[in-house]
Amino acid sequence: MTEELAVRTTGLTKRFGHQTAVDRLDLAVPRGAVFGFLGPNGSGKTTTIRMLLGLVSPTEGNAEVLGEGMPDRLASVLPRVGALVEGPAFYPFLSGEANLRRLDTADPKASASSQPGRVARALERVGLSHAAHKKVHAYSLGMKQRLGLAGALLAPRELLVLDEPTNGLDPQGTREVRSLIRSLADDGTTVFVSSHLLAEVEQICTHAAVLRAGRLVAQGPLDELRGAARHRIEVRTPDTGVAADVLRKLGLELEASAPGTLTAEADGAPPAEDIVAALVRAGARVRGFSAAAPSLEERFVELTGEGFDVAE
């Protein structure tokens, strides 16, 4: 209870008519975490983010951001939060710089005298200084995405909420955004990233939550999430009978195996070296062994049961 949370929701629910977009969500995002918010398209990620930012009011339940209730304490919470929601959006007839100045002006806590410096720093941080005076309609998708990030970074933030931050970026841009997120996290900023790109989440996040059809199906530190997945073990040996007994005694579930090869699965498998030692002790001639730690992607498909398909 005393652990400080950057975001906490309890029973957060949003219904649009008869459709429940977000269903009794209990999120806990620790301060300082890089928190991956995963789910197939249409699973309620963006609606949740909109509720956290006070754009949409919850039908039921509560959301606390940086220790204060939303949307009631919006005016004191939001200046400390930077956000990129459902893609960047700008006035196409204004330059990148003018767009950022307007956003900065809209924040009542941002002082006018330091505005030019803030805007210039934000542009520099995302590598857009050279295009500052170009009209946004001449920007590429990737440049708009960077400008959106610059908008989120205008002031020093305690929490960044980034909805699909690498959308539209080329591999180089994606790498830059990842390292940007890491450097922000190193400064102590909590980063809440929604994504359907699992590899991305796996690379940058310390924690993750998985959403399926509006419901939370898993949440926690990344290692824990990964560890909870089923491990897959493969043994190549001519002595399949002996080896099968050993594996069964270790609590592994054997699968149909080809001659000379055994495959087994387990929820919490013992360390690979212990399995091999047990096999050798029992006299099985081990010719090959592999223990596949499941990727987050496999875990994700397992949890959502549908991979990247759109939930109805």
Binding site: R50, L53, G54, L55, L74, A75, L78, P79, V81, A83, V85, E86, G87, P88, A89, F90, Y91, P92, L103, D104, A106, D107, P108, G151
Partner: peptide
Amino acid sequence: SLGTLRYLLVAPAGRIRL
């Protein structure tokens, strides 16, 4: 329709003020 409304409100411009 531009999408800038959500960014103004998150800034936060304040709904009544805006």
